[in-house]
Design a protein around this nucleic acid. Structure first.
Lengths: 152, 152
DNA sequence: GTGGGTGCAAAGGGTTTGCAGCAAG
DNA sequence: CTTGCTGCAAACCCTTTGCACCCAC
């Protein structure tokens, strides 16, 4: 990502502002989707008096213009935002520590074709979330189980 | 589904009430997930003075006890509720008419195993939504396209 | 200078909660 | 009789909106 924020905004036909600049910086610096609140918190370190509604307005503009993506995951009832890196991907969510990880492999191309034929639908897209325990949390669970066995 | 609502409540360890009875009736009678509001509307036909908060409270109880399922789909920012019929399934959503259809086939067992091995995660569940146009809406879109061709 | 972006506060939509009264066992 | 469910209204959280002001071009 060597393009300047100004160029990026111009490319997506969005006017420049300091606030937009800062939000692009924040989105660039994270590898995972963020809530508006998290972005807002980071903003306030950079811009005095930045308002949460501005964050929402900017994020919505970015999503409309295709610069950012908005995701609603089942576990949180807040929207998550991230830079649109034009990758098809899915999310792997840890039920223990709530960590969200990207998965880039996708097993669904063939399945979409099948649904298309079976159901007569014209398939446009899909969304897949996978829930489980990350290696660290899996380990902790193992430890608890072993403790319980030792005490019984 | 030949079990009475009373038996069903007892089985899930939930006390009987007229309101709970009515909501089970409603959930039984629909084949697709419903919003609290839709359930509420149906309730009011059956119970005088039924309150929306009661609907939410009952639905949350049902979900906690395993009698019902709650789904948050990307398109609506409302929760959807349905009877827990103990089927593994996914949803196919029409981008034209917002119709939601169940799919019972699932292509992900093998994929989950793969993720488990590659990422070291212990996979518990997944959620898949497929977006597209139903046969009727696809047809309408075709018509519009043909109209445009005819006029050009 | 002008159009559009911003801060602030207030409103919006879905959902939850506190409390007094009521119903089920 | 007692427990806990209900109705109502108010609160809650996330998100959007109205308006006056200000900034980028």
């Amino acid at each position: 990502m060597n393009i300047s924020n100004r160029e990026m905004l111009k490319h997506f036909n969005i006017k420049y502002s300091k606030q937009r600049d800062v939000i692009i910086d924040i989105l660039k610096s994270y590898r995972c989707p963020l809530t508006a609140e998290q972005i807002y918190d980071d903003c306030r370190a950079a811009v005095e008096n930045m308002s949460l509604s501005t964050v929402y307005r900017i994020l919505n503009t970015f999503v409309d213009k295709g610069l950012a993506l908005k995701t609603n995951l089942d576990v949180e009832n807040k929207a998550l935002f991230e830079l649109n890196r034009h990758e098809h991907k899915h999310h792997l969510l840890c039920l223990g520590c709530s960590k969200i990880v990207q998965i880039s492999s996708c097993p669904l191309k063939q399945y979409e074709k099948q649904i298309q034929e079976e159901m007569g639908y014209q398939i446009i897209s899909h969304k897949l979330e996978i829930y489980g325990y990350c290696p660290e949390c899996s380990k902790e669970i193992d430890n608890i189980v072993h403790d319980e066995e030792a005490h019984s």
